[in-house]
Design a protein around this nucleic acid. Structure first.
Length: 384
DNA sequence: TCTGGGGTCCTAGGACCC
DNA sequence: TCTGGGGTCCTAGGACCC
């Protein structure tokens, strides 16, 4: 193993959802566009074009507020399944260009280009420019790419050149590159952490660099160690190529708060069907079932129970219903959610029940197939 | 202005076991 | 009578990311 620094690229699609909508409707190009929910139905912006951002429109902003900031904003509904499919196709293409690729989120990819200098005459900067052009030409998707000696730094660097930017941070200049940036650019520093740092006079990465590790960990605990490393230009170098889901969840914010338990139970049943169907499509069983409630005042409560592994709608529903009754204090409910975790592979049956379970699994699979062909409403698994 | 939905990881307390 | 320590699992909540 050599100690040569790694060369890791971070590719970040620029306002990805908007870009996809612009492929479908070229009339949206050059205009302030946002993908999001309806302003009447408590929707928020999930992606905003740079023309819209110029008016202050941001992701996670309520749609109504976005329209007030930018009255000419074109608000379009998202097509998330399609975004996921395009993201996966792009990932497959990137794997033809680089030996190791990580799909870090629906619109972010890491590429380990260490040792690839020979393929591009030592010009990795030129290589990522070519890649950027290729993504635009083959997928009609604008993107920004940064190259650095670790993942964390590449991710920070790409944020400084979006949209349609390229950034190369040379080995040895990591700390210098980071110094003038605000600490909020570090992944993991959100609103709360940034405020805590600011309260100690730490505004820029340079401020952080000048504090001792002890100072930072005293303020932020174990998390401080990581931040201190990042501030000095260190970060994770290993790409994750074998990621598996650890939880499956489904939640719904209602356009109007639900007041009765009957309505809540009906919604709960739909949520359970949805997550169980996903669970079975993976061939897994869940052991921990969690129910979440959010009230009008946005106060949010969860409760969970761990059981013997199951992927059977009625079993999960019975547990979830008990949790819901336990959790609900009678007030109208804004959001209801179901969350499954702690999975087993699905083959850990006790022998006594194996035969019965086999038949049950067959029936559930038939239900899932019907739903896939004819829609979720075609058939429901009884739970009476 | 009135706040989505899908995730990950961490912390902390209590139960339980040895 | 008063009092161990460590490890692990479960649960609730919080911060953060896209």
């Amino acid at each position: 193993m050599s100690n040569r620094p790694k060369q890791i690229a971070h590719l970040d699609l620029d306002c990805f959802f908007v870009s996809v909508e612009r492929i479908k409707d070229p009339g949206l190009r050059g205009k302030p566009v946002a993908v999001g929910g309806s302003p009447q139905g408590r929707g928020v912006v999930t992606s905003a074009s740079y023309e819209a951002r110029a008016f202050g429109v941001r992701s996670a902003m309520p749609a109504g507020q976005a329209l007030r900031l930018c009255p000419q904003l074109i608000l379009v509904r998202g097509h998330h399944r399609e975004y996921g499919e395009i993201s996966e196709r792009l990932c497959t293409r990137l794997q033809e260009l680089a030996p190791v690729v990580e799909r870090a989120s629906i619109d972010e990819f890491y590429l380990d280009l260490t040792g690839c200098e020979g393929l591009c005459k030592g010009d990795l900067g030129g290589f990522i420019r070519t890649m950027q052009r290729l993504v635009l030409e083959e997928f009609s998707l604008p993107c920004s790419i940064a190259l650095a000696t670790n993942k964390t730094l590449a991710k920070i660097a790409v944020g400084t050149v979006k949209p349609a930017g390229i950034c190369v941070v040379p080995a040895g200049q990591e700390a210098e590159f980071l110094a003038p940036l605000p600490v909020g650019v570090i992944p993991g520093v959100g609103v709360k952490t940034e405020a805590r740092l600011l309260s100690r006079g730490i505004r820029t990465v340079r401020d952080m660099q000048q504090r001792t590790l002890e100072d930072i960990t005293k303020l932020l605990g174990a998390h401080g160690q990581w931040l201190h490393d990042v501030a000095h230009g260190r970060g994770s170098e290993e790409l994750v190529t074998n990621w598996t889901r650890k939880s499956i969840s489904k939640a719904e914010t209602f356009s109007k708060d639900l007041a009765t338990m009957a309505e809540l139970e009906e919604e709960l049943h739909l949520l359970v069907e949805d997550v169980c169907s996903t669970l079975r499509s993976k061939g897994w069983k869940t052991q921990t079932i969690q129910v979440k409630i959010r009230y009008h005042d946005f106060s949010t409560f969860t409760t969970a129970h761990t059981v013997e592994g199951t992927n059977d709608d009625p079993v999960v529903y019975r547990e979830a219903r008990e949790l819901l009754h336990h959790l609900h204090d009678g007030r109208p409910v804004r959001l209801l959610g179901v969350h499954l975790s702690n999975f087993t592979s699905g083959e850990q049956l006790s022998l006594d029940f194996a035969d019965h379970d086999k038949g049950r699994q067959k029936m559930l699979k038939a239900v899932d197939d019907l739903r896939a062909r004819f829609g979720d409403d075609v058939i429901h698994v009884g739970h009476a």
